[in-house]
Amino acid sequence: MSSAILRCQRLTVRYGPTVAVEAVDLALTAGEMVALVGRNGAGKSTLLRALAGLTGHEGTVVRDPRACQHPRGEVRVAYVPQRATPRWDMPISVRRAVTAGRLPPGRRWRRAARTDGRVGGGALARLDLTELAARPVGALSGGQAQRLLLARALAQEPDVLLLDEPCDGLDVASVAALVGTLRQLADAGMAVCCAMHELRLARGACNRVIAIDRSVLADGPADQVLSPGGVAALFGLAGAA
């Protein structure tokens, strides 16, 4: 556990009187691909947003730069929101949307420099978007749009990748391609944590599954957590597996 890049302790998020996430302890390490599962409203999105620094919370979230595959003195966390979040009718090209990932703190008032162009181009190529780079973002299919969001995250050159339901609404082929890409990224040393519905996917692609319902129900190897007698079954999650 000492090699955790991102670790939270006693993480609790409240929306007014409602407790969305309660006393969550978890740690992500480089090179692993983690599935975050739970029923609708279990707090998956809230937990990811808290880890990404988007939501006020109680408890601690610690980033450890020494645990990164390529230590740079800071841990970069990239967050991929649900596909419905962005304004897809915005008049921008795919390339410009991906380049937004190159907007690091402190330099954000400057235009994309040459490095930014190179990294952005790399991210586009990585997700097979090079041919679509000049397209308006509004003209993309669901799978292409999800790839755009992932490419934008890659343009941030992250150590940790947090994804909120990236497979929702995609066809089978797109899901397979996406999961394959995420797997490769994890194998290359990134810590990937992905909220998902599809338990079959979680079992097939992920080293580790965390089941939550406000707090952590189970955290362990996919086979154990999602086994017919496992904790997830108690909550009706295993039925889908």
Partner: peptide, 10 residues
Amino acid sequence: TFDPVHARTL
């Protein structure tokens, strides 16, 4: 404008 949530993570 395109994605205010993502912009906040930056």
